[in-house]
C-alpha cells in the first residue's frame, strides 16, 4: 500500500477547508453554474503560466519574470500583428518573443550562475520598464475582431485543456520532467549521473517563457487588447499557486502537475469567495492570501521535515536489525 505523505496531505486539507468555508459563508452561491464558470475563467491564466513555472520550481529555482513576460510579449505581439495587418500572427509572435525572454534568462542562470531569483527579479524590473516605455509610445491597442472567436468557451476551454494535457505529459511522462525533478532533489547527483544540467536549466526557462506567451494570448483574448497592466502581479500569483499546491520551495519530487491546479483554484476561491461574501477590497484579500501562504508553507515544510525524520528513523531501525542479525 502506498503510504500518504504528510506534506502532500496539507495542501489538500487547506483546499478543502477554504472550499467548504466559502461555500457555506456564501450561502452556496459559490457553487452556482455561473460562479463556477467564473472560477475556471479566473484560474485559467494562473494555471497556464504556472504549468511552465512548475518545471523551473521542480529544479528548485524560481521564475518571477513570467508576469512581465506576459505583458512584454502581449504588447509587442499585438502591435506587430496590427502593424502587419495579420491578426493571426499574434500567436506565433507572442510565443516567439516570450520564449526568447525565457531563453535569455535560462542562459544567465545556467551559464553565468546568477541565482534565478535575482535574475528574474531584475528582469521583472527591467522589462516592466521597457513595457511601460513602449506603452507611452503606442498606447492601448485592440485586437482584430476576427480573434474574438478564441474567447468563445467552445474554443477557449478545449484550448486550455490541450495546453494542460501537453504540459502534464511533458512533466510526468518525459525525461524533461524527470530530470528537472532530479535536479531539484540533488543537483550534484543529477550531474554525476550525467544529466545535462545546464541544458535542462535553459530548457525549463525557455518553456516557462513560452507558457507565459500562451498566458499572454489567453489574457489578450479575454481582455480584447493590450495594456501595460497586463500580467501585473501574475508572477506572484503563480508562485503562490505552486507553493500553496504543496510544491516545496526546493522542488524535486514534491513537484507535481496536479498541485498547480490545486493551488491555482485555492487562490481563485479565496479571492472569489471574499468577493461573494462582500469583502472584495484588495487589502483584505492580500492579507488573507499573505497569511494563508505563510501558514501553508509553514505546515508543508514542517510536514516535509516530519516525513523525513520518520523515514530516517525507519532506516536506523533497519540498520540496527541488520547488525543484530549478522
Amino acid at each position: 500500500m502506498k503510504k500518504l505523505k504528510l506534506q502532500d496531505v496539507v495542501p489538500f486539507a487547506a483546499f478543502i477547508v477554504i472550499f467548504v468555508f466559502f461555500t457555506i459563508a456564501s450561502g452556496g452561491k459559490m457553487l452556482s453554474a455561473y460562479n463556477l464558470r467564473i472560477l475556471l475563467d479566473q484560474s485559467m491564466i494562473t494555471i497556464v503560466v504556472g504549468l511552465g513555472v512548475l518545471f523551473v520550481a521542480a529544479q528548485g529555482s524560481i521564475d518571477l519574470s513570467v508576469g512581465v513576460n506576459v505583458a512584454f510579449s502581449g504588447v509587442l505581439a499585438t502591435h506587430i500583428s496590427l502593424r502587419l495587418s495579420a491578426p493571426w500572427l499574434l500567436i506565433p509572435a507572442a510565443l516567439a518573443i516570450s520564449a526568447a525572454v525565457g531563453l535569455v534568462i535560462g542562459v544567465i542562470v545556467s551559464k553565468l550562475k546568477v541565482s534565478s531569483f535575482m535574475t528574474t527579479i531584475a528582469m521583472l524590473i527591467g522589462i516592466r520598464g521597457v513595457v511601460n516605455y513602449i506603452q507611452t509610445k503606442i498606447g492601448v491597442e485592440y485586437l482584430d475582431v476576427s480573434l474574438k472567436i478564441l474567447n468563445e468557451p467552445y474554443v477557449k476551454i478545449p484550448l486550455f485543456i490541450a495546453v494542460t494535457a501537453v504540459m502534464a505529459y511533458l512533466f510526468e511522462f518525459t525525461k524533461l520532467g524527470r530530470y528537472s525533478r532530479a535536479i531539484g532533489e540533488n543537483e550534484t547527483t543529477a550531474r554525476s549521473v550525467g544529466v545535462p544540467v545546464e541544458k535542462m536549466k535553459i530548457a525549463v526557462f525557455l518553456l516557462s517563457g513560452l507558457l507565459a506567451g500562451v498566458g499572454a494570448i489567453f489574457t489578450l483574448i479575454s481582455v480584447g487588447g493590450s495594456t501595460n497592466t497586463m500580467g501585473n502581479f501574475l508572477e506572484m500569483k503563480v508562485a503562490m499557486a505552486i507553493f500553496l499546491g504543496g510544491v516545496l520551495v526546493t522542488g524535486g519530487a514534491s513537484a507535481r502537475i496536479y498541485k498547480v491546479l490545486l493551488g491555482a483554484f485555492s487562490i481563485t476561491i479565496i479571492v472569489n469567495g471574499l468577493a461573494l461574501i462582500g469583502k472584495s477590497e484588495s487589502q483584505i484579500s492580500e492579507t488573507v492570501e499573505g497569511i494563508l501562504l505563510l501558514l501553508i508553507l509553514y505546515a508543508a515544510t514542517a510536514a516535509a521535515r516530519r516525513d523525513r525524520r520518520r523515514s530516517v528513523k525507519q532506516a536506523v531501525a533497519s540498520e540496527t536489525s541488520a547488525t543484530e542479525s549478522t
Partner: peptide
C-alpha cells in the same frame, strides 16, 4: 524617461552586477 527606460537600465545593472559578483563561484 524615468519609470520606463531607467527601470530597464536598473534591471540590466542588477544582472550585470550579479554576474560580476558571482564570477568564480
Amino acid at each position: 524617461p524615468s519609470g520606463t527606460l531607467q527601470e530597464a537600465i536598473l534591471g540590466l545593472f542588477l544582472i550585470v552586477f550579479g554576474v560580476v559578483g558571482q564570477h568564480g563561484n
